[in-house]
Every structure is written in structure tokens, then in C-alpha cells.
Nucleic acid binder design. Structure first.
Lengths: 126, 126
DNA sequence: TAAGTGTACTAATTGAATTAGTACACTTAT
DNA sequence: ATAAGTGTACTAATTCAATTAGTACACTTA
């Protein structure tokens, strides 16, 4: 369900947080779905339970999951967070545009590129 | 000329490399311009000369600057690197598009956003 | 010759991330 | 009641990259 990239220089717990965030905001994991237990996932990924715990703590802090002691972690109702995630993506787009314009790339070129990506979509990647 | 962001989790030498890369590919620093000396810049930024040296070594390895022993570091002819930099930006755009499409954002929405950024350009930022 | 430049090297320090180990509280099923 | 599974909380040790510190050497220019 989740894969760690050891070539990635970011902390493992951060990668775990991001992967789950994507699964949740993109609807793969739905509200009330049960998250894998801390210990289970730790064994699955061959990393320390503390690292998973830290990731789950972060996900809870940010509202993506909630905890029931003794029962486990569950996905929250994240409808509200989808807008937040969209904003995040637009923010990233803004940065790319800034860099692009500074480097002399035109809005037209960017738009053409979007169309190309759109065409090639659903290709087997990553 | 350069500013370090201590809130940024990336290594200092990497930040230095990036800042100079931008100055160079965007034409602020031109071919044959003299780079600040390792020691001067170290004092200016209040960081260790070794860190600057590492950054300069990286810039040289990547072809952005060249070294003349005893004289200093100078900006290379970077015309060829501008294409490389453009590709990099398009690559970043591709990633944003992928995320966007997965999150249900349409190509049209992305294009509209580009126009908005284009309008607000040359605003006093960073 | 003196001052300024880059280069090379080793050692020490720092700090975050990760791992290791333990203990405790709660829930569920038996 | 008991056992197994769950989350939580702590402290200590380890690992690793980045950074700092210090020194020495070679070259260029004035």
C-alpha cells in the first residue's frame, strides 16, 4: 500500500505522511477506513514502530486521521481538506510559473505543455 | 547578493548553489563575471568557508563556473545551460499536472491559473 | 614580498532522524 | 477473567550528513 524510497533524502516519517495524504485526498482511502496498525505497518515496511507512530501523529495533528485508543487509527472525513489540497497544487503551479517567466518561458508554452501532459495521462508510471 | 534561509531544511551549500544557478541562468550574472571569493562570501554570509567551497565545487562540476587558481572563480558561458534549465522547469510543471489531474483539477483550471499569475507578474516579491 | 586567491585534508561538532527497548492503558473476542 | 491486538509515552543509543574548525600549500597580482 505504501513504499519507501531510500534514495529520497526526506525523512521516512515525512514520506509516510505524504503517501497517506495522497491516498486520502484522492479518495483511495475513504472516511472511516481503518489505517494499518502501527506495529503491522512497521513490520511491513521494515522500519521502526516509532517512525510510523510519528507519521500517524502528524497525520492526526493535521486532521487526516483520528485515533480510538485500543481500536486503531481511522480516516477522517476529508471533504474539507480536498480544497486545501487543491490550493496547495495551485500554489506549486504559481511557483513554477514564476520560475518559468523569469527564464523567458511564455504562458503559451506552459499551456501547450499542459495539453501534452493531459494527452499522455494514465500512462503506466511510478 | 545571496541570502540563506535557516528555516529551509535543505543544506546551506545546496541553497548557495541554487541561488547562484538562478542568478546565472537568468542572466543576472553574465559570462566572465567574477564570483565573490570563497573567503569573502563566507564572511558575508557568516558561514564556514568550507561550505562555500563545497558550493563552488558543485557549481564548477556542473559547469556553471570555472576556476583560475590564484585569481578566483568566474561565470562560464551558460547559453547551453539555459535549455537545460527550461527542461527542468517543464519537468516540474509535469509533476504539478500529474498531481492536479489525480486530484480532479482540469487542464482548463490550470491554464486559467497561469493567466492569473501572468497578470500579477513583476509584483514585488522575494 | 605581501596580500589575496583557490585547493586539499583531517578532525571535531552538531543536530535530526532513526532505532531500540520498555511500560502502560484501552478494546475486543474468547 | 484472559489473551491478543491496539495506541501512547518515555528514555537512551545509534547513525549519518552537514557544518565547523584548523592547517597547509600553490598560484596570481600589485
Amino acid at each position: 500500500m505504501i513504499l519507501i524510497d531510500y534514495k529520497d533524502s526526506r525523512p521516512i516519517y515525512e514520506q509516510v505522511v505524504d503517501k497517506f495524504r495522497l491516498l486520502i485526498v484522492n479518495g483511495v482511502l475513504k472516511a472511516e477506513d481503518k489505517m494499518p496498525s502501527v506495529r503491522t505497518l512497521a513490520v511491513e515496511l521494515s522500519i521502526n514502530p516509532n517512525t510510523i507512530q510519528r507519521a500517524y501523529g502528524e497525520l492526526e495533528r493535521r486532521g487526516y486521521i483520528y485515533t480510538v485508543k485500543g481500536r486503531g487509527n481511522f480516516v477522517s472525513d476529508t471533504e474539507g481538506y480536498k480544497d486545501e489540497y487543491r490550493s496547495e497544487i495551485f500554489g506549486r503551479l504559481d511557483e513554477v510559473c514564476d520560475s518559468a517567466f523569469k527564464a523567458g518561458i511564455t504562458a503559451g508554452e506552459l499551456k501547450d505543455r499542459i495539453d501534452k501532459v493531459k494527452e499522455g495521462e494514465s500512462d503506466d508510471k511510478d
